[in-house]
Design a protein around this nucleic acid. Sequence first.
DNA 1: TGTACATCAGTGAACGCGCGTTCACTGATGTAC
DNA 2: TGTACATCAGTGAACGCGCGTTCACTGATGTAC
Lengths: 197, 197
Amino acid sequence: MRYEKGHKDTTRQHIIDVAARRFRQDGVAAAGLAGIMTDAGLTNGAFYTHFKSKDDLVCETLMNSLDTIRERILAAGQGDGAIREYLSVKHRDRPDTGCPTPALVAEIARLPKKTRTAYTERVNGLIDLIASRFRNGSDEERRRRAMALYGLMIGTVQLARAVNDKKLSDQILEGGLELALAVADRSSSIPMPPPED
Amino acid sequence: MRYEKGHKDTTRQHIIDVAARRFRQDGVAAAGLAGIMTDAGLTNGAFYTHFKSKDDLVCETLMNSLDTIRERILAAGQGDGAIREYLSVKHRDRPDTGCPTPALVAEIARLPKKTRTAYTERVNGLIDLIASRFRNGSDEERRRRAMALYGLMIGTVQLARAVNDKKLSDQILEGGLELALAVADRSSSIPMPPPED
DNA sequence: TGTACATCAGTGAACGCGCGTTCACTGATGTAC
DNA sequence: TGTACATCAGTGAACGCGCGTTCACTGATGTAC
């Protein structure tokens, strides 16, 4: 073959990497295949050698990004490092390399069933991972806290990104971080109104 | 004139109402003007009698929706009614009539400066309104808590909408609601790690 | 009272453009004999 | 060793389509005289 072994896989992964950046930066609907392929250093037509459709690419790309986020949370270890990273100025200012959820969650809700199912599975995994970091409470209670924490983090990042005022944006990150750390703090008891376990 | 007085204003508001629903349902990028005008019972061309451009409509529409949300929070009164409404199954299942932030916040971050500035102003107002409902803490601390609460609520609603599993979606709403109520509870002291009040 | 003209919200066809997708083709390499 | 053919990642022009936007026109009413 005129390309070394594994070349096609490399190219495919390269397209996914480029697309992952563009989708998070511009949104799935606004990011065109032509632009992605040009960025990847290829022409239009080569796209369909690697993917069945744009929806197919979106799905692959999402899974890839979510796996990266999972790895980063794992790499951050047991402390509050992952939370501080998630609610950092850096993450706010680089949606293209960050968690796909704040950038794309509203669009994901409108995507085909297959993609939503795959997304749901990964998010469920993330929730489990976050829950496993909590020390207090039953499994169920910790999972509920993990959902609230993830919701808080994605909403905070989005709000900080949408707002046009640097000072306000920084304050939003700080406010979200304060609460997130309180939720995550294993030694403190977060007051949860229906105290069930 | 061949139309009664105020007819044009009525039509304009009707287009805004229809557009507000479509934008929240399908996203700004995916909702076309032709569809909106057809829904409004008019033809393509009439659009530019009322608005300068799609961006102009988006801005007007956003402001209109945010004003409605503010009124609903005011109408819900001092208790936790507004929070329960925001994190309800009803709000999750009807993005088209709900708060525009969960539906559009990622797109808002990519909109023209004028729109983002107007959005920022309204969100700032919402934060002040939420903060004014808290009893404990300094103005600044209450505003930070209000930002965290709004971030939590929008993130929770989005996650509940994106996920493809009804049971998980309900649990996400419950988890978010628990934490939101804890944050809002005026009598409890939410542990905020740097306790500056 | 009757006629000519101005007004203007709305019509509907058309504009150029970029979208996702298709497809005949290229050309460097590997394989067969 | 040399020639004929197969492979296949990538090329680049073209497809129909819906987008946001423009514009000459309509027609019901109000105004002028």
